[in-house]
Design a protein around this nucleic acid. Sequence first.
DNA 1: GATGAATGAGACTTCATTCAT
DNA 2: CATGAATGAAGTCTCATTCAT
Lengths: 215, 215, 215, 215
Amino acid sequence: MSSYARLRSTALELFASRGFQATGIRELAAASGISLATLYHYMDGKEDLLVRLMRESLGRLIDDARTVLAKVNSPVEGLAALTIMHVLAHGLRRTQTVVVDTELRSLGKENRDIIVALRDEYEELWRLQLAGGSASGTMTVPDARVTRLALLEMCTGVAYWYSDTGELGLDQVATIHADLVLAQVEARQEQGRIRLTDLDLPPITWFRELVLCEE
Amino acid sequence: MSSYARLRSTALELFASRGFQATGIRELAAASGISLATLYHYMDGKEDLLVRLMRESLGRLIDDARTVLAKVNSPVEGLAALTIMHVLAHGLRRTQTVVVDTELRSLGKENRDIIVALRDEYEELWRLQLAGGSASGTMTVPDARVTRLALLEMCTGVAYWYSDTGELGLDQVATIHADLVLAQVEARQEQGRIRLTDLDLPPITWFRELVLCEE
Amino acid sequence: MSSYARLRSTALELFASRGFQATGIRELAAASGISLATLYHYMDGKEDLLVRLMRESLGRLIDDARTVLAKVNSPVEGLAALTIMHVLAHGLRRTQTVVVDTELRSLGKENRDIIVALRDEYEELWRLQLAGGSASGTMTVPDARVTRLALLEMCTGVAYWYSDTGELGLDQVATIHADLVLAQVEARQEQGRIRLTDLDLPPITWFRELVLCEE
Amino acid sequence: MSSYARLRSTALELFASRGFQATGIRELAAASGISLATLYHYMDGKEDLLVRLMRESLGRLIDDARTVLAKVNSPVEGLAALTIMHVLAHGLRRTQTVVVDTELRSLGKENRDIIVALRDEYEELWRLQLAGGSASGTMTVPDARVTRLALLEMCTGVAYWYSDTGELGLDQVATIHADLVLAQVEARQEQGRIRLTDLDLPPITWFRELVLCEE
DNA sequence: GATGAATGAGACTTCATTCAT
DNA sequence: CATGAATGAAGTCTCATTCAT
């Protein structure tokens, strides 16, 4: 494992647990097993490191979302698939996603704009599913924006409370969330209410591999 | 407005926007209009100030939850009422609730334990509604714990994205969330699915007054 | 016990153990059982308190020295009597004497001059005995000043190492020091070397009462 | 002269004159000609600096005592040699020895224990001479412990009152103290009382070189 | 590539003291 | 007598960063 790879994961770990501001650059160096000055070979500054990590993480999320959407045939399927991917990503790549979610306020204006743009790009993919479902009458969405934000907050929250050591596996948590989301938008077909099991999605292991894939 | 009151609201403002770690005590003093040394008449230390604010906020939330629950006649009503109160509190007392939600990690073990205990006390009130609804068959709850956490994350999220200047008023946001929650648990009576308008709850203005009430 | 008396003894205790600089004015108030502001009814400032305590202590030492010298008939007796009194005072009024000995450097120039003058006044009484003994041939003093300072340092040192809980009582320590001093100056009469027991001094209980006397 | 060497001697100077507590680290940095932050490259904290200086000083004293004792043939010579060395060290390395003697109380328990152990190690060397002389009948020691402490206080005191600008040179002060000590223990051989000039010790210049030697 | 030394700015906190009540 | 509120100055220490080597 290279110095930079160690730095990367150490930084995510520390930023996610202590917070960006509370993480000293010396801690970072020590925990990464490199010297303080060497740290500056790998980054231009503390904020630059942060923004890089956030871009990588959000970029990955967007890529995965696109991969997932390429496999579906309807807004309802798209919404369910995004939910599963999102929950798995927030459980399996917890540190990354927490940092993105938490440390926007630690960025200067310029960097914040960059990250917000990426976040918007990601949320747009969710918006499209809700809009599509609403238009085709397969979802009931009281308010498009509020619903989208509510769903996202709910699914993102997994990163904060999920623990490997609990009774429930992450796959189940993801499945439950997909069902909650479908319930929330009252997803239906001609036959009536749709549950996750009614959909023709790739198996959860496929999602898991996608999300865990190192590159 | 007393020095302490000013300090209190300033601290909440700054902790919520910049973060606890990122807020210097000099800023705090300056923004409160008191001297740096005077600050220490009103607090024993930065963390003590934080924990005090968090206790007050959570204590208030618990009180309001109890007040609200005294007005309802069923788990479904209880859940809806809690949702409305929670969303209003997170929109109207945004700084408080954000600080509680965000800065747990800034506390030392002892203080963290205190706050976690309060938070658990609050969540227990939610758990009871879900358990009651599930037992009486008026709700479908795939997994009690996951559902509870998912709902809470969703409603808490309002504090992060709601803005007074948007199209939608907070009352509407609260109403929408209540409906989303009822949809999520598939709330029903003999007659079938229940929506918020089917319930016999106090008017939203009552909730608003409760949540805003200064004492 | 009056507030001031408590303050006095508390201050001596703290100044002697922690040091003047290391003793906070809040500690002082708390340990004296009075409020911070009330402290300033009893003193004009921290240094003023210190200098007052030092003056009292040195004044007392000078008085006792004069009392003692009024009882003797020769320089040798005078030296022995001063030694006994000095050792008893440094053992029984330890805090006072330690503060005087230790905290000269904490005084501003003006106050320091006052205390140094008192100290000189006290040491002059010792000098007179050594000079008298040397002149009359009852002592051998290699160098008057060095001898005086050496003896004083030796006797003053008792305040630092003597403990009530040790095997030896303070009376014995004082006696031993008197003998060491007589040996050091090779005190003698026509008959030869003189030891403490050869002298016609008041009993040690008389010294002890003098030193302990509250007024 | 390296930054650390300057810091070292500056710290000794300031700690000895103002006292440890009264010496601010800003003063320390300024007087050492380095920046406040650079100070912390050379020390872990103020107390750590103090304890390091004390350890060095006491270690040196112990080494010199051992060197000196290797040159003597009897307890009486040992006692005289220790006295000369001790007085020279306290006159020539005044700041070090004063700090050791004065600032024990400024140390926390752990550090204090370390320094007290070293001090005990040094005093043990004195104790051995007195015990040896007493056993062989070449000294009269009323009470072994009291005598030891009294002698040490006397000799240590030199650091407080000796000044280069006085009439007497330090060599003479050391010699006088050795004679006082011999008088105090009534050192003798078959022929009778022994004075310093009767002993076969290295010349005082040898002691002086030993004590001044930089390494 | 890697590092130890160095630093200005700022962190949190306590200091002795004053003053209106 | 006694006090709570208030403060400027100073306390110790850490921050992210630079640079010569």
